[in-house]
Design a binder for these strands. Structure first.
Length: 508
DNA sequence: ATTCACCCTG
DNA sequence: CAGGGTGAAT
């Protein structure tokens, strides 16, 4: 790598360009090859929906000095396997696209400048490593017809599909946005106004805005193509055609909107202008192992000026960005409310409302230990972040607390009444226990409590009953064994709960 | 270092 | 129901 830098300083502009080209060829080859190997992408859909499997059996043995806290060996078989947590937080980011060869083009567009920033070893290592695949380290390179032809073909293909990807993504966003807002309105108007007029101002604004925001991408694609071409070879007709296509698209969108450059465009033109005047060595990151978990940690990707510098400079988050790994357009995970509204999909809400609390309580009738994934799917109108996730989890923790306190209370009460047999215990909708629970989770009694909840209450009641009766409650952690049993009783929450308008649909 | 369940408290 | 503390697990 040191050699590479030494060579670099001595090379004239032409050689730099040439190397650049070769580098991209090798990248293309590499990524096409990589693409073939990784045809099947791993999908990280974690499978624990019940949350029960994750019950954490944490015995607190630490304070054995004061009170021996260990789960007394109970009659049933002690599950030996180690379990993680009651509620498992798994953020699954699914989008995996097959077009990996977008990568090179994306670097063309977004790669950092290496000349003005200090070129340290680590950055250089990326270059060296990328060359290590077959081609020898940077050697003086003379344009070769075969290579040029291959370059043209590869870049043409890549650029072509890149533009297609951009366009189709934008189209998809627009159409899905439109469909979503239609669907939402339909919900809101409660089924009678199915044929919504398309003149809804919100919709047209949305579409225009999306196109407007996507424009920089198209501009970038076109400009990058042109700058690349012009620096590589004076005239390559096939490229110009593609670039023009991208620009035509941009012009197409410009008709709808005033052509005031957006901050994105300003940034991009700065980048591109800088690149045009002083040809750079386009760097790429160090090669990833094949098992790179590209479904996560996208935000940590280093070379996305759109995310790093542009947003800081202009204080505005990008509405759409190019996924660093897939090359596809993606929306930002953290959109401002305004932008979230523009997207229209589900108006993600920042905080949890009393509405959500109410719904969560009803969900408790079905599941006492929901995983965070379940929570996320059943609150589609909530914009989840750390705080809201914690809050929801805390809610269910509080629900459980209240539930078990009530159960224990009535178990002790039954015991004090002289009930001998746990089988004599029962829980009906007329039971005081049920009324207490219902009054907590379903105060207005708008919701019909599922039968299964009565079973769970009864099961819990009996467990508490026998445990207390057997005197196991002297063990400070005696309840944990019960929790372990009860958490298995979670059942599927009806799909109706997934609707953001569930309460208005069902409760009224 | 972070996250979460649980406990306790207000 | 939220906050704070603790222990445990990742």
């Amino acid at each position: 790598m040191a050699a590479a830098q030494l060579n670099m300083s001595q090379l004239d502009q032409h050689s730099v360009k040439a190397m650049l080209l070769q580098k991209h060829i090798s990248e293309l080859e590499k990524y096409q090859q990589y693409n073939g190997e990784k045809a099947d992408s791993p999908t990280n859909e974690s499978g624990n929906d019940s949350g029960c499997e994750n019950f954490s059996d944490r015995k607190s043995d630490h304070d054995s000095s004061t009170n021996a806290r260990s789960i007394s060996p109970i009659s049933d078989e002690e599950p030996k396997m180690k379990r993680s947590k009651l509620i498992d937080v798994v953020n699954v980011d699914a989008p995996v696209s097959q077009s990996r060869n977008m990568f090179s083009i994306r670097n063309l567009i977004y790669s950092k400048d290496t000349s003005d920033s200090e070129t340290d070893q680590s950055e250089d290592s990326g270059n060296a490593a990328s060359n290590s695949n077959g081609s020898s380290p940077p050697r003086p390179w003379s344009p070769d017809h075969e290579v040029m032809r291959k370059l043209k073909a590869d870049l043409s293909t890549t650029l072509h599909s890149f533009v297609d990807t951009v366009v189709s993504d934008v189209c998809n966003k627009v159409s899905s946005n439109y469909k979503e807002s239609l669907r939402n309105q339909r919900k809101a108007f409660h089924e009678h106004r199915l044929h919504l007029h398309q003149e809804d101002p919100m919709d047209t604004v949305d579409t225009r805005q999306i196109i407007e925001d996507a424009k920089p991408m198209l501009t970038a694609a076109a400009a990058a193509a042109q700058s690349t071409i012009s620096s590589a070879s004076p005239s390559i007709a096939s490229f110009a055609a593609h670039a023009q296509r991208a620009q035509q698209l941009q012009q197409l969108t410009s008709r709808h909107t005033p052509s005031v450059p957006t901050p994105h465009q300003a940034i991009l033109s700065q980048h591109l202008a800088a690149r045009a005047t002083q040809p750079q060595v386009f760097q790429r990151e160090a090669p990833r192992p094949l098992g790179y978990p590209y479904t996560a940690l996208q935000s940590s990707y280093p070379y996305n000026p759109m995310l790093n510098s542009a947003t800081e400079t202009y204080g505005r988050r990008p509405f759409l960005s190019i996924d660093p790994l897939t090359g596809r357009i993606k929306s930002e995970h953290e959109m401002s409310d305004e932008q979230a509204m523009i997207f229209g999909a589900a108006h993600p809400q920042e905080g949890l409302t009393p509405h959500h609390l109410k719904k969560a309580k009803l969900m408790f009738f079905y599941t006492r230990y929901p995983s965070s994934n379940v929570l996320k799917t059943f609150f589609p109108d909530v914009k989840f972040n750390r705080a809201t996730t914690s809050q929801l989890i805390k809610w269910f923790s509080n629900f459980r607390e209240f539930f078990y306190i009530q159960i224990e209370k009535y178990a002790r009460h039954a015991l004090s009444e002289g009930i001998e047999n746990a089988a004599d215990l029962k829980v009906t909708r007329e039971s005081e226990l049920f009324k207490a629970l219902n009054n907590h989770y379903n105060k207005t009694n708008e919701f019909e409590v599922p039968e299964e909840f009565l079973d769970v209450a009864l099961m819990s009641l009996r467990e508490f009953f026998v445990n207390i009766k057997e005197g196991r409650d002297v063990d400070p952690s005696w309840k944990k064994a019960i929790y372990k049993i009860i958490c298995k009783s979670d059942i599927e929450i009806p799909d109706a709960f997934k609707s953001a308008t569930f309460l208005t649909d069902v409760a009224h």
